[in-house]
Nucleic acid binder design. Structure first.
Length: 682
DNA sequence: GATCCTCGAGTTCC
DNA sequence: CTCGAGGATC
């Protein structure tokens, strides 16, 4: 009993010491002990825990190495989405960014926090009652993968927060590999005869996505925090103070950050860090600017998926020089002919690039690209290869200008380029095998009917052998037919049939999207489905009725009407939904035109700082009751909702005689409608 | 008529 | 990711 409590005391001391040294090393970058001394303490704790297994707790520094390898990562839905930033490449972009921020806040000078943009992987760490409980990758921003086991092995991620953490805290940050650690890792890989990594980013990504956490543990990964997601508790009111606060909690944050006023400060920081880029211990691909005041951030809100209060100022992408060996054309789903450069393979931005799109004829003329030219290529946004420009001084005598073919290279139909359009198109429609293939691939794609197992190779064969001509043919395939295809055994054939069967239960908006109507993408398909409620209503709608749908104008309306006026399209649809064994979805009554709710047809403008609700809350309150929120005051504005320190928008409202509401009046107005109908969440 | 914002469509590599 | 274009707004 006595020895137990002595052991317990010593274990607690050791844990505290190890946590302290981790903090000194990873957060303050100021170690107090050597690695050897640290190891000594660590081994003493391990020994002690081995002798007294009941002393082991999950957050002990010894408990970092994961148990058994996983079969697959679970997916995790982020409580607060992890959105991406807009990118800027020029000083002009930054000047515009600052102007929009100042206009949005109605201020002359705005304070910004500026920091490096790490070239790693975005991660979210969830702490509950100060203990690390879950970590996930960014994924598509809404759903990521659960990599908790791997993250636990990283020394720079505290298993337990210091000080007084909130009950729930999600820390957002980046997992990366320091350059010197990357060099050392590659050295080890070379000696062991293993595969070397191309760059620190790939090494970090590969290491983090190991299903066996013991592999991750052997890789020198680091974490750097840069923000928070969900937080159940108090936190500071500015971004710069927030980062200090995270550091106090034990989360490593960069010290290469500054607080500056106005656009000059931003550009100055960009230039200074640019000159030191090579000397930094980690790779960065730019810098990030954020409006420092968090309430101001909330006031600015989001445009589409990116915040209006922050921007990434990227360094110019790495460029390389290679040759254009040839230029081919590809035929897309809509018949668009896209010239593609076949390049002499060149290593740029982390991979070998051998193809690059040239978009269209005009683009090619602008860049003056010939076949045989020496050209500069880069990976735009570090992903999609792009030909930047030709080097005409290196042009060989036999270089040729590319000519857009007059007939489709696949089906021989005439190529037509409409006077106002940039793209040339094959006029063959679904007669053209290339267009048929693309249409089928689109129909089967994940966001449309989501047929698993139907990829490009299979579609190629099905179309070339004339087994499948239209989407409805897919639902009449037999096991024997499929098994005859190349690279298709009984097993994969059965899987594909199961995939086809599984796709039958769908939704109206997916089905509309899958049809591949010109100018009707995912968003428009959703709007159409909601507005009309059933396929028959949509099929019989005339152009005037179609234009009632928001975001549908004359062009989209005409595309839709034309699609449903073609007999073969109707036939395919009827075969697809033929009962009892066809494609099916739930239908509902057409959405009533927006006459419901107290705010139907009303336009609101928000200005100033609201005291009891965020801008996003106010916006969803208004939108849920049929109202619209717009950015600036005009004659058409019905109400201006003014908070504290409202500026020019309030003046303008008074000028135009627009009704002005305060927060309480807005809520009172909203109450009137919710009293009559059940409260709708969100 | 100009400008902002979104959506659609095409695309690369692993 | 990027471009072009459709739609909405000023």
């Amino acid at each position: 009993m006595a020895s137990q409590s002595a052991a317990e005391k010593r274990a607690a001391e050791l844990r505290e010491a190890l946590e302290h040294h981790n903090y000194q090393y990873y957060v303050l970058d100021d170690p107090e002990v050597s690695d050897a001394e640290y190891d000594l303490l660590f081994r003493e704790l391990q020994q002690l825990e081995a002798e007294h297994p009941d002393l082991v707790s999950a957050e002990s520094p010894t408990q970092r190495v994961g148990a058994t390898p996983l079969a697959a990562f679970q997916s995790v839905t982020h409580a607060v989405p992890m959105l991406s930033l807009n990118n800027a490449f020029t000083e002009e972009d930054i000047v515009n960014f600052d102007r929009r921020v100042r206009e949005g806040l109605e201020k002359d000078v705005v304070n910004y926090s500026a920091e490096p943009k790490f070239d790693g992987l975005a991660i979210s760490l969830r702490y509950e009652n100060g203990l690390f409980v879950q970590g996930a990758t960014r994924g598509d921003g809404y759903t990521g993968e659960d990599v908790t086991q791997n993250l636990r092995t990283m020394q720079s991620i505290p298993l337990k927060l210091r000080g007084k953490p909130p009950r729930v805290l999600e820390v957002r940050g980046e997992v990366l590999m320091f350059k010197r650690d990357f060099e050392a890792l590659n050295q080890r890989q070379r000696e062991a005869g293993g595969k070397e990594f191309v760059n620190p980013r790939n090494a970090a990504a590969g290491s983090l996505r190991q299903l066996d956490a013991r592999m991750s543990a052997s890789r020198p990964l680091r974490f750097m925090g840069y923000g928070i997601g969900a937080c159940d508790g108090d936190f500071p009111g500015t971004h710069s103070a927030l980062l200090d606060w995270l550091a106090d909690l034990g989360i490593p944050v960069t010290r290469e950050r500054v607080l500056v006023a106005g656009v000059d400060g931003l550009l100055d920081f960009y230039r200074r860090i640019g000159t030191r880029r090579a000397a930094l211990p980690f790779d960065i691909d730019g810098v990030v600017y954020k409006v420092d005041d968090l309430r101001a951030q909330e006031q600015l809100g989001f445009v589409s998926r990116a915040p209006r209060f922050a921007i990434a100022h990227k360094f110019p992408a790495e460029e390389a020089i290679t040759e254009v060996r040839d230029i081919d054309v590809q035929v897309g789903r809509t018949g668009a002919l896209t010239p593609t450069a076949r390049l002499k393979p060149v290593f740029v931005g982390g991979t070998t690039v051998s193809n690059a799109t040239l978009h269209n004829e005009d683009e090619m003329r602008r860049k003056d690209i010939h076949i045989g030219d020496t050209v500069v290529v880069r990976r735009a946004g570090d992903v999609i290869p792009e030909v930047v420009r030709a080097l005409p001084e290196k042009r060989p005598a036999d270089a040729r200008l590319f000519q857009m073919p007059t007939h489709c290279p696949i089906c021989g139909s005439a190529v037509i380029r409409l006077p106002d359009e940039v793209v040339a198109r094959c006029s063959g429609g679904l007669v053209c095998p290339a267009q048929r293939k693309q249409a089928l691939l689109h129909f089967a794609s994940r966001r449309a009917m989501d047929i698993e197992g139907l990829g490009e190779k299979i579609v190629d064969q099905l179309v070339d052998r004339n087994i499948v001509r239209t989407p409805s043919d897919l639902y009449h395939l037999g096991l024997a037919t499929l098994a005859e295809l190349e690279r298709m055994g009984e097993k994969s054939a059965a899987n594909l049939l199961a995939g086809i069967e599984g796709s039958k239960q769908t939704t109206l908006s997916r089905f509309i999207y899958a049809l591949g109507i010109r100018n009707v993408g995912e968003a428009t398909a959703r709007d159409l489905a909601r507005h009309f409620g059933s396929l028959d209503q949509l099929m019989t709608a005339d152009e005037a009725a179609l234009q009632q749908v928001s975001d549908v104008g004359p062009i989209v309306a005409e595309s839709v009407r034309r699609f449903f006026s073609e007999q073969h399209n109707i036939e395919v649809i009827e075969r697809l939904r033929a009962k009892p064994d066809g494609v099916r979805w739930d239908e509902h009554a057409p959405a009533a035109p927006k006459t419901e709710g107290a705010f139907a047809g009303k336009t609101f403008v928000l200005t100033g700082t609201l005291s009891n609700m965020s801008r996003d809350n106010a916006r969803s309150l208004i939108e849920s009751r049929g109202g619209k929120v717009s950015g600036s005051v005009s004659k058409k504005t019905h109400y201006v909702v003014a908070g504290d320190e409202a500026g020019s928008k309030l003046d303008r409202a008074n000028e135009l005689g627009v009704a002005v509401l305060n927060e309480e009046q807005l809520l009172a107005l909203a109450e009137e409608s919710s009293a009559k109908e059940p409260q709708e969440k969100q």
